[in-house]
Amino acid sequence: MRNYTLKQYLLLLVAIIIMMVFLFPIYWMITTSVKPMSDIFSSPPMIIPETIQFDAYYKNLIQDQSLLPYIRNSFIVAAGTAFLTLLLALPCAYALARFRLMWGNIFLLILLVTQMIPGIMMAMPLYILFSKIDLVNSYLALIVGNTTNALPFAIVIMRPFFLSIPKGLEEAAVIDGCNIFTAFFRIILPLTKPIILTVSTFSFLFAWGDLIFALTLATDEKVRPLTMGITKFIGQYGTQWDQLMAVSTIAAAPIIIVFLLFQKHIVSGITAGSDK
């Protein structure tokens, strides 16, 4: 353990204050959800809740279970997106890092360009395409939509990772009688655990928070994810802020949990994504 000077402890104090001010909205969301109605509308606003109660959670999770299917749908879509993204991105990023392919650089450029297009502009053509092949209102449509969002990012951050693996590994494997496929599956894939974790965390979180494809590609309540559930509650609850903030906290909980578990991977993913 390093010894810090007094000045460094003062910096820590400033950091705590900055964090408290900056993250106040999240704190406010959580505290609003556990306050009784009268305290929510108290003036001045009650910064530290006096009575804590979980009525809003009880109502939305146990008494009225209409929220649960939304949560299930969100999990299916987010996990499916993470899976499809990995399935496509892993071999692709590997090939782009290892092989000298004629189309490799062009493909990388196309990925960077398509990533710039707003998701909502992709939604209309995908809606028309999917309605022609009767895929609107399916988990698959939502998974494909969200994968368009996650795939470029996944490939862009995976490629440098493969570049950092020494080439000698596969060469040795080939001498031992592997072809490029078995070398990839047996030698390279087991090494990719950290980057798989980063990419799947990101694609899961992207898909979990998606509203655009949920709004446009799923008009049927049966497959609609939680983000659409929240927009429904916004209409239904109006200014019943305790209910709305409870639903929001429930939807944010997986994000906060995943975030706390994988924060190291998330930070490294963001900085790698902008490196090119």
Binding site: I26, G209, L211, A251
Partner: peptide, 8 residues
Amino acid sequence: AWMTPLVI
């Protein structure tokens, strides 16, 4: 702040 879904 950045990770929270925009709806929320």
